[in-house]
């Protein structure tokens, strides 16, 4: 049975999508990821889509949903590694993935999450 693995790395969750998602798999990922966020209470979620060659409006909505639900559970989501052709296609499609944070690759995405978490913590301690 196909399944997208969700790895826990310190305060973060790491998801690497290695196949093009069809609907069932994508919906399952959404559900499993939200469960994992509730269980592990991570500060951030990093989704690597460098192997994904199609994002249509359905998939786009899944990413937006994940980001918004994670936000509700106090976790930042970063989608990394989008292929140039996929980015251009999304823009032409009229789907700019509002609310989804992006980074060039896993490393940059991690930097972004670490910085974000640091700033948030500083902000909280200053209050």
């Amino acid at each position: 049975m196909e399944r997208i693995p969700i790895l826990k790395m310190g305060q973060f969750l790491l998801v690497t999508i290695q196949v093009d998602l069809y609907d069932r798999l994508a919906l399952e990922l959404e559900e499993n990821l939200i469960r994992a966020i509730t269980r592990h209470n991570p500060r951030g979620v990093l989704i690597d889509i460098s192997a994904v060659s199609i994002i249509d409006s359905f998939m786009g909505r899944i990413f937006s949903n994940i980001a918004r639900m994670a936000q509700l559970l106090d976790a930042e989501t970063v989608v990394v590694g989008m292929q140039p052709a996929v980015a251009i296609t999304l823009v032409e499609l009229g789907l700019p993935l509002k609310g989804v944070r992006t980074a060039l690759n896993v490393e940059r995405g991690m930097d972004l999450l670490v910085n974000k978490v640091d700033t948030n913590e500083n902000a909280t301690s200053n209050d």
């Binding site: 199609i54 359905f58 052709a85 296609t89």
Partner: peptide, 17 residues
């Protein structure tokens, strides 16, 4: 081109869905 291929399959995905 690979960009046009991506556009074609993305449109396919939309329309098939």
């Amino acid at each position: 081109t690979s960009l046009d291929q991506t556009k074609l399959i993305t449109a396919t995905s939309e329309l098939t869905r």
